[in-house]
Structures are given as structure tokens and as C-alpha cells.
Design a protein around this nucleic acid. Structure first.
Length: 704
DNA sequence: CACAAAGAGGTTTTT
DNA sequence: CCTCTTTGTG
């Protein structure tokens, strides 16, 4: 595999801090894997290398590429997501942070349930205090490393919110469980043990990080402590920072240069992925963002067909069009797996799925309702969670009356009361309450645990389904239940596969707890979504959200639903930072395409059940016309794409099109405006190019 | 206390 | 549009 000069430079720099700013399609993964290969050639032992990625998909693809690159046994090389690696280390040293050996990992749904519990415990109304929002808010604090005590003195913060945060933490602790943010926080807390930290610093001589722009405060601190020796190689792209909502701080890129003075900086700007028109279009879109480190991708390739833009009548027409285009592609000998349909939110997949299904085209949906997130799967696993840890209150509450066994809301409320008053787990409380039906449930779990002893993983799953009449319960649910029954059988398969798979083998050898395969499986279920659906071997069209698409590439990309309110998303419209992130997301989506990029929007769309007229996304306005071919042009020539009235355009002190003078840039024309008041930004076309300026700062003189 | 029916409410993105 | 919650009945 050939590397260009810059790539080669990055790969072979001497040990020391390195920051690679790598544009989309500039061979980022190749550089990262080649760097690892280089280190190994230079005599590094695989066990001295830690490679961190952001998603499971990325970790997987890097491992594959590395295996192709080097012949040696990669045993001992740690490669995985932040959360996955944090989990590994916590398993090894759980005692140091006060966790039980088989602590549970709560997924987002579990966390939200626990927030609900916390609200109930505190006697707060979950109508007024939205559990979902609270969970998001608390999650954001935790991603930023902000503990309840840090919030104590904030007068603007309602006391109730703080109380919920505290109660939530308490409930988690009592259950011996951790949420996603805890994995990172506790892994960081481990570093307070200086001896332990030194041990890991010694071990991981080389730390490599992918998608560095997506790291949050806690992750950065963790890395910084671990890589105090400075042998840290990070790769990132500020233009692809799309996880700000999850606490990611692009600033970490600047922080890196400060924290590691003398860090070498390498820029990769040559794009090998996309054709010139695709690149030109993507560059034009991202150019509208202020505050960029400023990178312009270029390609040595010439030619390539223009970016296409289809104006659909509605979401059905959009799906019909896309599927027809895929059929053309296949008819001309293209592979289905080289086609991707990318959308802003997972809910948009439905019409595409229906049309693909109707046409008999295999497809695979990533994200959305994932296998391990399905209710029937989580129910079944909850039994196993109780088998492993009786004090897992979330699991207890989930299945204590499922299927119905006469333990209703009243009993449960009494149980909760009792447990809360005495600081007991629900399991302990149930034991003390002497209620026959509860007793029967406890016996059921104990029996289950007894029988699960010394059984294989899939047998354990089967045992749950035999001992607990979950199958019958679903079977009575008619059509809906049928799919769920299939999923339950699939769960047995998943357990069998997991027991044999590498993903568990890696953990098992590190795992000091014998016979804890079940625990690892449950973690796997929480940490990895389990991309179910179509058979892996099948040549299938790929459907996924823009976020999931990051890091991937496809010959033919359909970027759909480019409408105001959908993309950019409604929730981002008011907030300039949010809009900038949406724009980066658009850039990420466009740069996934290698040969052909097709953009779609619909004039009318059913959203949340009702039909509504849609306006073309503002991002479409920024496309260079010469690179774009409109597939259903408007009847009248040169009528532009309908442009949305920006939400707060009326607030703009200068009318669009007005001539203005800027003290530095000279005369220009007002092109656009977004945001409101002093927060607003104004775009002006100067002779030297167009610029976005903050209205709160800029001093403009209107000329006409 | 279980279950069925009707109503209300809430919808981004991921580990 | 879908799920979850509340309400009403047996």
C-alpha cells in the first residue's frame, strides 16, 4: 500500500507527540494503521500499544486493516472504543473504585428508567421534570466531568435537578451498576492510584487515538494522564466534529498542542476518495462555517459526474426515486453494498425499507432499534442480570411482574418504599417483606441461578426461556409477538456465537473472574448495539444515519431528507453552534461518496403523523451551481431552489442584498443572516470572498 | 390485581 | 406515527 509524502511523514515520525489533521478521505485510517505497523517494525511489542477509536465499527475495521498489514500475532495489542477499554480496565481493578466484580453497564434506556425511579423516590412529578431531558442533562455534566458537588453553588439550577442527579448516582451505586459516562469517569479515577497509573504508563508506550476531535473532557484527561510520556499519536479533523451534543470538545485539538509542546503537526489534505465535483460541493458547504482550522481538500483526480439533486414530491417519491436509481446501478453491474442511503435521523429509514422490500432488494439497516435494545431481548437479559447480581434493581423492576405474576403497582410501591427507607436493594426488601408472590419470584430466580451453573452461555439463555413463560406471553400477542419470538431464538444464537467469538476471547483472557462469560455477554449487549437484520454475507444496500456513516465510504451515496427542520434538525435551528455542527454533519455525509453523490429533498413530508410542506435545506444553497445537476428542475429556467426564510431573518438589521462597508474588508453585499440579536451572524460577499461575521462585534456601514 | 381500551405526549445523532 | 400512561372494567 503506497503512502504519499505527508502520510509517510506522519507514519515514520520519531516517537513523541504527533497531531495529524486529516481531512475526509485523506487516508486517515491508513495512516493510523501504518503507524502501528511502523512501531511494530521498529521493535515495539504489541502489548505496548493502545489504539483508541470512537465507535465499534471503526475499531473493527482498523483491526482488520492492521491484520492485513502485519504478519505478527497482535495478541496483547489493545484496540477498542474508549468505553470498551475503560470497561476492560475497570473489570481488572474494580475494587479500587468500589465496584463489585460483576458490575453492570447500563445503557441509555436503563439510565432513563433509573432517573424515573429517582424522580419517584424524591416525590417529583415526571410530567414536569422530563426524565429524558434530565437524563440528557446529567449525562452531559458527567461527560464534562462535573459531579453533583460541583453544581451545588449554581443558584440558577433548580434544587430538584441536583437532587435527582444525586439520587440517580445513589441508585446506581446501590445496584452496583455504571452508566456510559461512569465507565470513563471511573477509569479516570483509577489514575488517582499513582502506582497503577505508573504501571499502565509503563505498559502502554504508544497511545494512538482516532477521531480525536470527538473526545470529551474526561476522555482527554484520561489520555493525558496515561500518555504522560508523550508518545501519543492523535488523528482528527475539526470539520468532522459531530458529537458536540455528547460533550465532545474540538478544543482538545488545541489543548493537545499546549499540553504537548513540541508536538509535531501533520496536515493531510489530499483526498483519495471522492471525485472533483463531490469534493468541490462538500468544500463549498463546509466553507460557510466560521472558526475552522482551515483545511481545503483537493484531489488529483479529474472528471467525475456532477453531484445530482433530486426534488421529490414527498418522502414516498424520494424513496421510490432512490430505489430506482439503485436498481439502475445494479443493472449496470454495480454492487448493492456500494450504495448507501444516509439520513439525519433513524426514523427516516422506513419508506426506504418498504420500497427496497417491495423491489426485493436486500438491505441492511444500521442503528435505529438495535437488537440488544429491543424490549423482549432486554427482558430476557434482565433475568440473567438478576442471576448474576440479585441487587440489580433495574433488572428486578423490569421483570418482577413480567410476564404478569400478580405483583402489581401497589406491591411494587410498598417494596420501593421499604427498600428506600432502609437503603436495601429491591431484592433484599422483597426477601424481608414475606409476601408469597414476591417469595415465588425470588425462588424462581434462585432456581434459575442454580440451573444456570456450569451451563454454556446459550444454554443459560435457553433456560431462562424455559423457566419463564416468556415465549407463551409473546405468542399471545399475535403478529407483533411473532417477530419477538424470532428475536428470542436469535438471542440464543447470539449467545452461542458470542461464546465462540474473538470479542469475548480477548476479554476472557484478561478477565480474572472465572466463569464470567455471562457477565461479558451482558456487557457486550450494553456496549455494542448488535447490528442485527440482514445476513452479514449478503450483498446489501446500506442504510444508516449520518453519524453512523462517519469513517465509512461508498461508491454511490444518497443523502436524503435535505430539508429545513429535518436537516438541519429543528432543534439546532436556533443555535449557531448547533447549526455549525449540522453543517459539519452534512460535510461528513457528502464526503462519504466516492463516485456519485445524490442529494434529495422532498417538497412535502409526513412528519410525526401529519403532512407538512418542507423547504429545501439551507445547505443546498451553498452548492456551487456548476457542480450540480438538478434532476427535476423547476419549470421556469433559473428559478433558484426555494430558499427558507431564516428563522430570525426579520431581526437582521441589514436587508439581504444591501450594500455595506466593513472597516477592513471594504464594500460587500449582504448574502445571508442567521440567529438573532447580538448572537446573530451575517454573511457578506466581499471582493475578497464571502465571510460570516458576528453581528455583536462587527461595525458595518450601510451604503444603500 | 389483571387486562383491554382509549388518550396523551414526544419524538436527533451514539457509547 | 408510535409508544407509554392513564383510565375503566371484570
Amino acid at each position: 500500500m503506497e503512502l504519499n509524502e505527508r502520510q509517510q511523514e506522519a507514519v515514520s515520525l520519531p516517537p513523541g507527540p504527533v497531531l495529524v489533521l486529516a481531512g475526509a478521505g485523506s487516508g486517515k485510517t491508513r495512516v493510523l494503521t501504518s503507524r502501528i505497523a511502523h512501531l511494530l517494525e521498529e521493535g515495539a511489542h504489541p502489548g505496548q500499544i493502545l489504539a483508541v477509536t470512537f465507535t465499534n465499527k471503526a475499531a473493527q475495521s482498523m483491526r482488520q486493516r492492521l491484520a492485513q498489514l502485519v504478519q505478527i500475532d497482535l495478541h496483547g495489542l489493545w484496540m477498542g472504543t474508549f468505553h470498551g477499554i475503560a470497561h476492560r480496565i475497570l473489570r481488572l481493578h474494580h475494587g479500587l473504585v468500589g465496584l463489585p466484580a460483576q458490575f453492570q453497564v447500563l445503557d441509555a434506556d436503563d439510565s432513563q428508567r433509573l432517573i424515573r425511579r429517582a424522580l419517584k423516590d424524591l416525590g417529583l412529578d415526571d410530567k414536569y421534570w422530563n426524565p429524558r431531558q434530565l437524563a440528557a442533562r446529567i449525562g452531559r455534566w458527567k461527560d464534562g466531568g462535573i459531579a453533583p458537588d460541583d453544581l451545588r453553588r449554581d443558584p440558577s439550577l433548580p434544587e430538584a435537578v441536583l437532587a435527582v442527579y444525586r439520587q440517580y448516582e445513589l441508585l446506581k451505586e446501590r445496584a452496583g451498576a455504571v452508566d456510559f459516562a461512569d465507565l470513563l469517569l471511573l477509569a479516570l479515577r483509577l489514575w488517582q492510584d499513582k502506582a497503577l497509573l505508573a504501571q499502565y504508563q509503563e505498559r502502554f508506550q504508544h497511545v494512538l487515538v482516532d477521531e480525536f476531535q470527538d473526545t470529551n473532557a474526561v476522555q482527554y484527561q484520561w489520555l493525558h494522564a496515561l500518555a504522560a510520556h508523550g508518545q501519543i499519536f492523535v488523528v482528527g479533523d475539526d470539520d468532522q466534529s459531530i458529537y458536540g451534543w455528547r460533550g465532545a470538545e474540538v478544543e482538545n485539538i488545541f489543548r493537545f498542542s499546549q499540553d504537548y509542546p513540541g508536538a509535531r503537526l501533520v496536515r493531510l489534505e489530499q483526498n483519495y476518495r471522492s471525485t472533483a465535483p463531490i469534493l468541490a460541493a462538500a468544500n463549498a458547504v463546509i466553507a460557510h462555517n466560521a472558526e475552522r482550522l482551515g483545511k481545503t481538500l483537493w484531489t488529483a483526480r479529474s472528471g467525475g459526474s456532477p453531484v445530482q439533486l433530486y426534488r421529490a414530491y414527498n418522502e414516498e417519491d424520494e424513496a421510490r426515486f432512490v430505489v430506482a436509481r439503485i436498481q439502475d446501478w445494479v443493472a449496470k453491474g454495480g454492487k448493492r453494498e456500494d450504495c448507501a442511503i444516509l439520513y439525519r435521523s433513524n426514523a427516516q429509514s422506513r419508506p426506504f425499507e418498504e420500497h427496497l422490500l417491495r423491489e426485493g432488494i436486500p438491505y441492511r439497516v444500521y442503528g435505529g432499534l438495535r437488537f440488544f435494545e429491543r424490549a423482549e431481548i432486554k427482558d430476557t437479559l434482565a433475568y440473567l442480570r438478576l442471576v448474576l447480581n440479585r441487587h440489580d434493581d433495574a433488572a428486578f423492576e423490569r421483570v418482577v411482574n413480567l410476564p404478569a405474576r400478580g405483583i402489581g403497582a401497589v406491591t411494587l410501591e410498598r417494596l420501593r418504599q421499604y427498600s428506600q427507607e432502609r437503603g436495601l436493594s429491591l431484592w433484599q426488601a422483597a426477601g424481608e417483606l414475606q409476601q408469597p408472590k414476591l417469595q415465588a419470584f425470588l425462588n424462581l430466580i434462585d432456581q434459575l441461578a442454580e440451573r444456570c451453573r456450569d451451563r454454556s452461555l446459550d444454554e443459560q439463555v435457553s433456560l431462562v426461556l424455559e423457566q419463564v413463560p416468556l415465549r407463551d406471553w409473546h405468542a399471545r400477542d399475535g403478529d407483533r409477538g411473532e417477530g419477538r419470538l424470532e428475536n428470542l431464538e436469535e438471542l440464543i444464537n447470539a449467545a452461542r456465537t458470542f461464546a465462540l467469538s474473538d470479542s469475548s476471547a480477548g476479554l476472557r483472557e484478561l478477565n480474572p473472574v472465572p466463569g464470567d462469560l455471562l457477565g461479558e455477554f451482558l456487557t457486550h449487549a450494553a456496549l455494542e448495539a448488535g447490528e442485527g437484520g440482514a445476513e452479514a454475507w449478503q450483498d446489501a444496500v446500506q442504510l444508516m444515519s449520518l453519524h453512523s456513516a462517519k469513517g465509512l465510504e461508498f461508491a454511490l451515496v444518497f443523502l436524503v431528507g435535505l430539508e429545513e427542520g429535518l436537516f438541519p434538525h429543528q432543534r439546532s435551528l436556533e443555535d449557531p453552534a448547533g447549526l455549525a455542527e449540522e453543517r459539519r454533519l452534512c460535510y461528513v455525509g457528502m464526503t462519504r461518496a466516492m463516485q456519485q453523490l445524490v442529494l434529495c429533498y422532498a417538497e412535502s413530508r409526513r412528519l410525526h403523523g401529519s403532512e407538512r410542506m418542507a423547504m429545501a435545506s439551507r445547505f443546498l444553497r451553498d452548492l456551487p451551481p456548476e457542480e450540480v445537476e438538478e434532476l427535476r428542475p423547476r419549470a421556469r429556467i433559473s428559478r433558484p431552489i426555494p430558499i427558507p426564510a431564516a428563522s430570525a431573518r426579520s431581526d437582521c438589521p441589514y436587508p439581504l442584498g444591501a450594500r455595506v462597508r466593513h472597516p477592513v474588508f471594504g464594500e460587500g453585499t449582504v448574502l445571508d443572516f442567521e440567529g438573532g440579536g447580538r448572537q446573530g451572524r451575517i454573511q457578506i460577499q466581499f471582493a475578497s470572498g464571502s465571510k460570516w461575521l458576528a453581528l455583536g462585534i462587527v461595525a458595518l456601514e450601510q451604503l444603500s
